[in-house]
Each structure stands twice: as structure tokens, then as C-alpha cells.
Design a protein around this nucleic acid. Structure first.
Length: 298
DNA sequence: CGATTATCCTGTGCGC
DNA sequence: TGCGCACAGGATAATC
């Protein structure tokens, strides 16, 4: 469900409601939600004060006053919802953060693909207890920042945040690649934050077919792609993200987004293209549905 | 190595 | 109305 605009909307809500608040208790009931390390380690956060709320791509980074970072990913169906302790727990509530002077923050996730983990806690719990290949200090993530936080080592494989990429990065990352353009837009190692909805919307604004071989884009097309990426994501954030018909995505206060009303192609197969009127087509790229206009996008 | 697919889950909507 | 099936905003391990 949540892509960059939705996660950014959640980030702003968490920041507004919980920044500077002290965590009184963190309870985890879902066995799959904290799976990268011993769930009991989250007890280390008790008594800490939230001092930064960052984001890189679709990952939320909660920074605490002792330097710890709690990472959250909502995957397909996760939600972070503020609620008073007295309100009944929704089905599929897997974790509850209790704060001083604020509502509880609940992690609700029916499909259980989402996860929470404390950054930097993985190494000690690897079977061999040793260093992982490719994680040596000389290739450590350099100056990458996400809301003032250094990027945790677990996220070192991510590309730059999609709001930070320009034509130069895209040109270098797509050069020589034969995979469809859309497949690389949703590849988090290329750029972080774009998912299935926004890849289609970006391709439409850029007037590029999602099935174009990614390496074949000309300089002018790469510039359009970079501008479209920034424009679409920025406008989607301004609209509070996209809440589809299943109403699954909600911000921290339970409010729906409105960018779904501005979708040009996503989910609109057979309906007229907003630009030219030709019916929007649906193709399959990387086992996912891809929507585009054959006339407007080439 | 790069590109494709199979898998983890629950919920929903569609066709029959 | 009810049932079975396909599919869903993602990431990643396995396979070709």
C-alpha cells in the first residue's frame, strides 16, 4: 500500500504527535512483525525520548535520545495509527507504543509483511556472529541522511530517496539495462520510494511507456523522467497520498489521502486517458499490473 | 550478472 | 446468497 507519499504523510503525522515524547512502554504481540532480531530487544527503547522522525524511501526512521533508531516498514498493508489506550484494539494490531502525554501509536498490519526493527541489532544475532560480506567499513553508507539520521546499515543497499534523484543519477542507473523502465523505477536499489502506483503515474507524466527498455532513454527523456518523478511525488504528498477503494491507507490520525482522485492511469484500464481520451491500457510488467496510454506515452 | 518468478499473508471483489 | 479464485500499495530468495 504505502509508497513514498504515504510514508511521508505518516512521517509528518508521527513527528507532529510524538516528537519530544517519552516512550513508556512498547509491547509486541505479532510474532512476524519483529523478525530480524529478538523482539525483547525493543525493551531497550523504554524510557527513551523520540527526538527525530526521518524517512528514506518507504522506510520510517525513529531516532531516540540515546542514538538508537527504530526502523518501520509498512509493506503492503501496514498502518501506524494514533489511538487512546481506552479505544479497542483493531484486528491485526501487532505492536503498541505507549507514550507519555500522547495517544498510543499502534502498528496494525493484516498481511504481516510489514516489520519493525532496531537498527544495528542484526549483526550480533547472525548465526556466525561475524561480519557480513559487503558491509565492511570502507563501503559504509557515507553521508546519507534521512531527517538528520545516518542511514542504518540495514538500508545501505537502497538507492537515493526518490525525491533527491535527478537526470544524471537516472541516466547512470538505467544505462545499459534492458529491463522495462517501470521495473527499474520500482527497484529500491535504483531509487527508493517509488512503487506500483507512482511508477505508472510518473511514466504517464513523463510521456514514456513503462515497457520501454530502460537503457534506451535519450537525454531529453531522462530529464522528463526526473522532472515527472519529482512532480508526481511532491503533488501526491501535498494531497496526503492515495487511499484506494479498499480504504486501507490512512494517515496516523485515520484520515484518507486524496491523490487517488488525481491518478491519470493507475487502475483506470478501459477508461479514457485524461490527456487524449484513448482508453487506458493494462499490461503486465514484472508480474504486476501496469497502466498506460499508448498514444501519450512512447 | 541481470532479469523473471515464486513466496510470504489476509482481505476483497468478481464470476459463476 | 454462497463459494472459489484471482489479485492487491512490497521486498527478497530462488531460478533461469
Amino acid at each position: 500500500m504505502p509508497e513514498l507519499p504515504e510514508v511521508e504523510t505518516v512521517r509528518r503525522g508521527v513527528s507532529r504527535l510524538y516528537l519530544g515524547r517519552k516512550l513508556l512502554q512498547l509491547s509486541v504481540t505479532g510474532p512476524r512483525t519483529v523478525r530480524r532480531h529478538d523482539p525483547g530487544l525493543l525493551g531497550l527503547l523504554r524510557g527513551r525520548t523520540l527526538c527525530s522522525v526521518g524517512r528514506h524511501g518507504k522506510y520510517l526512521l525513529l531516532g531516540w535520545d540515546d542514538g538508537q533508531v527504530l526502523v518501520a516498514h509498512l509493506r503492503m498493508s501496514g498502518q501506524l495509527l494514533a489511538a487512546k489506550p481506552s479505544e479497542p484494539l483493531p484486528l491485526h494490531t501487532h505492536a503498541v507504543l505507549r507514550f507519555s502525554g500522547a495517544s498510543d501509536l499502534r502498528f496494525v498490519d493484516p498481511r504481516t509483511f510489514g516489520e519493525l526493527f532496531l537498527a544495528g541489532m542484526g549483526r550480533a544475532f547472525l548465526p556466525d556472529g561475524g561480519a557480513r560480506p559487503g558491509s565492511s567499513a570502507d563501503v559504509a553508507p557515507m553521508a546519507a541522511k534521512a531527517g538528520g539520521l545516518a542511514l542504518p546499515e540495514e538500508l545501505a543497499g537502497l538507492g537515493p530517496d526518490a525525491l533527491d534523484v535527478g537526470p544524471a543519477h537516472l541516466g547512470a542507473a538505467l544505462a545499459g539495462r534492458r529491463a522495462p523502465l517501470k521495473a527499474l523505477l520500482v527497484d529500491q536499489r535504483v531509487l527508493a520510494g517509488v512503487g506500483n502506483i507512482y511508477a505508472d503515474e510518473i511514466c504517464h507524466v513523463a510521456r514514456l511507456r513503462p515497457d520501454r527498455p530502460a537503457g534506451g532513454l535519450r537525454p531529453a527523456e531522462l530529464r522528463r523522467l526526473a522532472v515527472a518523478t519529482h512532480t508526481v511525488l511532491t503533488e501526491a504528498i501535498a494531497a496526503g497520498g492515495s487511499t484506494l477503494s479498499d480504504q486501507r491507507y490512512r494517515d496516523v490520525l485515520g484520515e484518507a489521502g486524496s491523490y487517488q482522485f488525481e491518478h491519470k492511469v493507475y487502475g483506470r484500464a478501459g477508461q479514457p486517458c485524461m490527456s487524449c481520451g484513448r482508453p487506458v491500457e493494462r499490461a503486465t510488467i514484472g508480474a504486476k499490473g501496469a497502466y498506460f496510454c499508448r498514444r501519450c506515452q512512447r
